[in-house]
Nucleic acid binder design. Structure first.
Lengths: 252, 252
DNA sequence: CGCAGTTTTGATTCATCTCAATTTGTGTGG
DNA sequence: CCACACAAATTGAGATGAATCAAAACTGCG
């Protein structure tokens, strides 16, 4: 993991134990994006401790009091919603540089669960203080609004997927999206480890795990990917993209 | 309409032509919520002209430059996303007091279309000025964040619907949601006019229009509602709620 | 009054779910 | 380090809910 190498180059010291947006390799993808050096220093002061989570541990749960948003420093998360009648829907998967917890702003209570899918670390950003700082640093305010807006737009994309795509189209979209996000983080666009189970993928995509598994197998037969359990290698990106193009008109 | 009565009590004058959050009957549901009288005055100065739209007219389109968000003053809207490959997904229906346009903040371009489903009127809120004012009025900043967050949470609810409900559950959820929103605006919880076609409902719910129509008919047979084209009367709200409870485990 | 758009209803097809059995992988304790 | 138990993933066969295709009825607009 290239990531580890980078981290080793930065000697551990006390200030680091608190936080360090300035040196974080996610800086360009995360909240500090677009801020000047002095502004990032302000943000650094605001960011509380980091918090480490083991695989399977909850970062927050539905109905927990909302106090902070979180920036994923390393690792992998899922968020899911539990409805009163027992339905369970995965609403997203978050990786380094992405922000978690904005669901809680509206009601002061979290409205979903956030769970680490592998050992992970987050930066804790107390929300009241973020709002204070945002009202002073206009770039920060503006950027925070952009982050929230993009979350809304992302959700619209998921609605489109759930509302108008068939199983294989959904999985292709999902794989291409992961590939693109890994690429943005300096990892291989073509080869990665899925941190979630088939059932979690299925929940996210509105499919049963068997259907997800079959779609994986189908892509493998067609030479688009090589899968072995959680390990995926994309052999033919244009081919995967073509899965989306052809047949028009399912429900949508 | 109680609404008209209220409006008549306020004599029309020039300042009203510009805007008037202070006297708007949507004040409690809209952006001014929670602001002091003086703060609302500031917001009033900021809110640009109102804009009237005829049925079928676009408030904005995908890729339009983002400059303002809009508060629905009266009428009814839909938003939809068009994907490159021609898919069309309705992402929401907006009524008085609700905010439109936040999809554009992230990229400075709108990422969906907003169309009036009946003759409507919106208040234009220039976004740059809103951000300025928000950095001065903390209650406004905070409330705006809550509005965006609630939009995210609403979207999660739609994901749950699309990802884990069957056709009749989706329609029941949709009707109960409309009922509840009409109630909050002082209208009957049980009787209303749908402003959208079966096809638009279907797109929103991830179903074909025929399926929507059949579900309506089924609910009518079961005595849960009385439908005639766009006119809906809910006869048995608990009954509709029970549609959601029973069978567990569809995809989700 | 007629025509276009919308809605309803029916018959059939098809994608995905369901149920079930098997294989593979993973973690734990002897 | 192996064996066992458990979780995750695969694969098959059959059931089913929603899509599709088609036609008829209704609505409202010009």
């Amino acid at each position: 993991m290239r990531e580890n190498v980078k981290l080793k180059l930065v000697p551990l010291n006390v200030s680091q134990l608190k936080s360090a947006c300035a040196q974080c390799n996610m800086r360009e993808l995360c909240l500090p994006f677009g801020l000047s050096d002095t502004e990032v220093d302000h943000l650094d002061n605001l960011v509380g401790a980091r918090r480490k989570l083991k695989r399977g541990q909850h970062l927050y749960r539905t109905a927990d009091r909302f106090e902070a948003i979180f920036a994923v420093k390393s690792g992998f998360f899922k968020t899911d919603v539990l409805s009163e009648d027992g339905r369970d829907q995965v609403t997203g998967f978050q990786m380094a540089g992405e922000i978690l917890g904005m669901d809680g702003i509206g009601t002061d209570l979290h409205s979903c669960n956030a769970v680490a899918l592998e050992d992970s670390e987050v930066c804790v950003i107390p929300f009241a203080e973020l709002e204070s700082l945002a009202s002073e640093i206009r770039t920060l305010q503006s950027h925070f609004h952009k982050v929230m807006s993009r979350e809304i737009v992302r959700d619209h994309g998921v609605m489109m997927l759930l509302g108008s795509m068939r199983a294989e189209e959904r999985l292709a979209t999902f794989l291409l999206n992961l590939s693109q996000r890994f690429t943005a983080r300096g990892y291989s666009p073509a080869e990665f480890h899925l941190r979630m189970t088939r059932e979690e993928i299925g929940s996210y995509l509105g499919l049963k795990l068997e259907t997800v598994s079959r779609a994986f197998s189908r892509f493998q037969e067609d030479g688009l990917i090589a899968v072995q359990q959680k390990h995926v290698r994309i052999l033919n990106i244009p081919g995967l993209q073509k899965v989306l193009a052809p047949r028009r008109n399912y429900p949508g």
